[in-house]
Simulated assay, not measured.
Amino acid sequence: MAKRKRRKSRKNNSGLKVLIWILVIIALFLGVYAAHHYYRIWNQQRIEKQLQRQDQQAKQAFIKQVAPEAQAMQNSYHVYASVTIAQAILESQWGTSQLASQYHNLFGIKGTDPNTSRVLTTKEYINGHWIVTKGRFKVYDSWSDSIKDHTKLMLNGTDTNKENYQAVVQATSYQQAARELQKAGYATDPNYAQKLISVIQTYKLYNYDK
C-alpha cells in the first residue's frame, strides 16, 4: 500500500510541474506580448512627437521667411504685418500649396492676363456650401513680390472698387483689420476673420506688428 501511495504522489508532482511550466510559458508569452505592445505605443508616440517638432520647425521657418517683407510693408503702408502673415499661412497652407510653391502666390490673388497667371483648382464657399471650381491666379517671381502685390491690393482696391480695402489699411488693431478683410469680401469663407485672429494669437504674430 505504501508503494502505491508513493507512485501516486510522484504522478501528482509530475502533473504539478507540468502545470507550473505551462503557467511560466504563458506568463513569459504575456510578458513578451505586453513589452512589445508598450514598445510599439512608445515608438509611435516618439515618432508623432518628432513629426510634430518637424512640423513646428517648418511653420516657424515659414513665418521667419515672410515676416521681414510683411513688416516692411507695414512700416511703409500701415498694413498689419500679423494679418499679412496670417493670410499667407491660411491662403498658401504654410507655403505648401501648388499656387505658393510653384507660382509664389501666397494670397490667392487672381489675375486676368494669361501671360502672368495660371488657371488652377480652388475652393469657394457659395450658398452655404464649399464647392471646387477653377480660377485664374497671378504668378510671381518670389514670395516677396507676392507680399508687395498684396499690399498694393490693400492700398488700391479692386478694379470695381478702389476703396474696397481702405478700412483694412485704416484699422487700429489686427482684430479690426481681420474683420474688415472679411467685410470687404477678400475670402468667401464665413469664418475667415476668426481664423486669421486665431492664427495670429496661436503663433503670436502680433509681435511682428511692433
Rank of each mutant, 00 (worst) to 15 (best):
T96S: 15
E48V: 00
G157H: 08
Q182H: 04
S117L: 03
K138E: 14
Y203L: 09
L205Y: 09
N13A: 10
N75V: 02
I147R: 10
I63H: 08
Q182C: 01
G31A: 08
D145F: 01
K195N: 03
Q182S: 05
T151G: 02
T160P: 00
S144M: 09
F62T: 06
V132R: 11
W94R: 13
K134I: 01
S142L: 07
A178H: 13
Q93F: 01
A2G: 10
Y165T: 10
E124V: 01
G111N: 04
S198Q: 14
L51V: 03
G157D: 07
R136E: 12
K17F: 13
P190I: 12
Q93R: 12
Q170A: 07
K64S: 11
T202R: 15
L196F: 11
N161T: 05
W130V: 03
A100Q: 08
H36Q: 10
I89Q: 08
R7V: 06
K49I: 03
S97Y: 07
L19N: 06
I109Y: 11
K59S: 10
D149L: 02
L196R: 13
K210L: 09
S144I: 10
V132A: 04
Y140P: 13
Y39Q: 12
F107D: 05
S101P: 15
F107G: 04
Q87M: 13
S14T: 10
Q44C: 01
S144G: 15
T112L: 06
I41K: 01
Q201V: 06
D189A: 04
A167N: 14
I131R: 15
K195P: 00
K162A: 04
A35P: 00
A100T: 06
L30N: 11
D145Q: 13
K152D: 11
E124N: 06
L30S: 12
M1Q: 09
K3I: 04
W42K: 02
H129P: 00
Y39W: 09
H36A: 13
N75T: 06
I200L: 12
H104L: 12
K204W: 01
P114S: 08
H78N: 15
A187Q: 01
S142A: 07
